[in-house]
């Protein structure tokens, strides 16, 4: 027993020394960016988008980067912000509206650090909200769906603002093209259950939906599988990542949010001493961030005249003439 205790003490002393050297290493002039994500970056979805933004900053701006996954646990957010800020990180991106409160609490203690919050409209000193207005590309999808399809279905993960906004945009787009067009929504209640997403999509298709768009982070892919298995008459759009491989015949187009480009742009400004003076809302007007392209590979590609119409609608959204969702 004595031996164990002594060994423990020796071990502890060693750790202490190691700790000192580790913290000494961090004292240099590099530009550092940290990222807080609510889930796992291994999923093709929301968390990956944040991770890609971080990687973009690393590769394009040469910053030193680090990230932490916080299991959607609000109690741990404040600590993670403080951990990064106290280690001299210049920019910390909280990837999700849920990080806003914690950032607001920590930020006054670290006035030199910039706290970016995804999917938020906040602007208070060094806390800046960045939002990608997903309702805009979804408006286009809804518009196309109502022009080309009989009935549409949307499969969501949990009912959170980024997904609600997207679906609101879709519904408005569909109504804009055809007020009588029916759009149904299903939430599976999590972001991990691929099987549930798949069955939800299959169910909608069986009930007559010929236009289905899944939006459930890691579970999204289940929706595309259902669509691919249901034959080429069911249409969809690939969102966030490129899912063309999964359902090549069904995907009419791609909405890819190159959030990384947007974040790189903002972080570059911060590096040069220019913090944004208001919150940032990326939309179709930011062509480098929000890319909406139509594909020719699909079994029933978007017809030429509709493409022209879409270009027109897109321009109107970018110009602010069409409002895709309530602000």
């Amino acid at each position: 027993m004595n031996l164990t205790r002594r060994a423990c003490l020796a071990g502890a002393a060693g750790l202490l020394l190691a700790g000192i050297s580790a913290s000494a290493m961090a004292q240099d002039g590099e530009f550092k960016m940290g990222l807080l994500v609510p889930g796992s970056v291994s999923e093709e979805g929301w968390n990956r988008i944040g991770y890609n933004a971080l990687k973009g900053v690393e590769e394009q701006l040469g910053a030193k980067v680090s990230y932490v996954e916080l299991q959607q646990n609000p109690a741990s957010f404040e600590k993670a912000f403080r951990d990064y800020a106290s280690q001299g990180f210049n920019v910390i991106l909280g990837h999700g509206f849920e990080f806003q409160d914690a950032a607001l609490t920590v930020a006054p203690e670290f006035p030199d650090t910039t706290f970016l919050i995804s999917s938020s409209y906040i602007h208070e000193d060094n806390v800046i909200g960045l939002n990608t207005d997903t309702s805009q590309p979804f408006y286009l999808m809804g518009y196309i769906a109502a022009k080309m399809g009989k009935k549409a279905g949307l499969v969501g993960g949990m009912e959170i603002p980024p997904i609600q906004q997207a679906f609101e945009g879709f519904v408005n787009g569909a109504k804009g093209a055809n007020p009588a067009f029916e759009v149904n929504q299903v939430y599976i209640g999590n972001f991990t259950d691929i099987s549930a997403a798949k069955e939800a999509a299959l169910g909608m298709i069986a009930q007559g939906a010929d236009f289905v768009v899944p939006n459930a982070s890691g579970a999204t892919v289940g929706g595309y599988q259902a669509i691919a298995e249901s034959g080429p008459d069911v249409k969809t759009f690939s969102i966030f990542s490129d899912f063309t491989e999964v359902a090549p015949k069904n995907i009419l187009g791609l909405y890819v949010a190159d959030y990384a480009q947007g974040v790189v742009r903002i972080v570059k400004g911060i590096m040069e001493g220019q913090r944004p003076e208001s919150n940032v809302d990326f939309g179709l007007a930011d062509a480098d961030v929000m890319k909406f392209t139509l594909s020719d590979e699909a079994a029933h590609p978007v017809p030429e005249e509709l493409r022209k119409e879409i270009e027109d609608v897109k321009a109107k959204i970018a110009a602010g003439e069409i409002v895709t969702r309530q602000k």
């Binding site: 291994s42 259950d193 099987s195 579970a219």
Partner: peptide
Amino acid sequence: YLTLGHSNQFVEGIAS
């Protein structure tokens, strides 16, 4: 069954 018989991907915590 979840990864080979229904959906074709693995996700952390897929057993849900």
